[in-house]
Design a binder for these strands. Structure first.
Lengths: 154, 154
DNA sequence: AGTTTATTGACACCTGGTATCACTAGTGCT
DNA sequence: AGCACTAGTGATACCAGGTGTCAATAAACT
């Protein structure tokens, strides 16, 4: 059996998310609902601009600023995780952050979330060697998923 | 004794760097020399825009595009490493990449390079669990260095 | 010296994201 | 239900960081 503890992303429903927003003192508005719905429509990582585009077409025509603000809110409420790829482009994943890392397919975006973090020992060691107070780390893994390998998209 | 194998960054001289550029088929131009010199002046991480600003003042007035292009060239020739912080802002470190990771002070930029990478086992495990072909990973550590802690800048 | 080709830099442009601010609409109160 | 209060909205302008274009320039090779 594996030690990676792959985790299925806990899939929240729209109402659960809206509950959570309320609990944190956020209002439940039309535009916000539309953003939540759009976010739930994605199982793969998406960028803020993608969402802006989708929602600009939609019936409600949500503004750019609102989309960005809502993404921030959703991330702060643990409905979304924001990750940054090595080339510096941020994208969002639905699912709570917490201590989690991701394995992403560079071609199709398929994402596997895992909770095993090999950093604990290293961090302790670095801290005792350097006397840094360690606060954060990045760790994301990139590769090609089996489907893309088979499809010869490599 | 530590297992982190902290490494001093191999400091190349200007001529060594220019040798290396030549070996890779790049020409040795005035502006390029100026960028190299400016890069060597930094022991801490710096951004492309910082360098642009520095060099705009200088006697030679190097253009923005040239600075960006040269940084790319220097990174491709292993004179610089480009790292991206969790907030998505890229910066450059002088020193070859290779398999290296960094511990950066969030306040003053002091950087410790280490070669111990705890990823090897995890990668093998992830690969066998998911059948991804793993190609890349990010791993950078952030914290507060002892000097900044003492200075109470925390 | 002359030719070739990489390199330069001014400039316009682009993308992703943020600040402003008058307006709108949830929410709680009565 | 009506009202007041404040969070939230979105148009717009703006910003930073970075890229594409292209005529002019300068290495390098003969």
């Amino acid at each position: 059996m594996s030690h990676t503890h792959e985790s299925t992303i806990t899939h929240l429903t729209e109402t659960e998310i809206e509950q959570r927003l309320k609990q944190h003192g956020y209002r439940l508005t039309g535009p916000r609902g539309a953003v939540v719905e759009a976010v739930l429509g994605h199982t793969r990582p998406f960028t803020a601009e993608q969402l802006v585009a989708e929602l600009a077409d939609g019936p409600e025509a949500i503004g750019r600023a609102t989309v960005y603000r809502t993404l921030e809110v959703l991330a702060s409420v643990d409905v979304l995780t924001r990750i940054v790829s090595p080339d510096g482009h941020p994208s969002y994943l639905s699912g709570a952050p917490g201590h989690r890392h991701h394995l992403l397919c560079e071609l199709c975006g398929t994402t596997v979330t895992f909770t095993a973090c090999p950093m604990t020992d290293l961090i302790a060691e670095l801290a005792s060697d350097t006397h840094f107070e360690i606060r954060d780390h990045t760790l994301e893994v990139f590769g090609i998923c089996p489907a893309c390998q088979q499809a010869g998209r490599v």
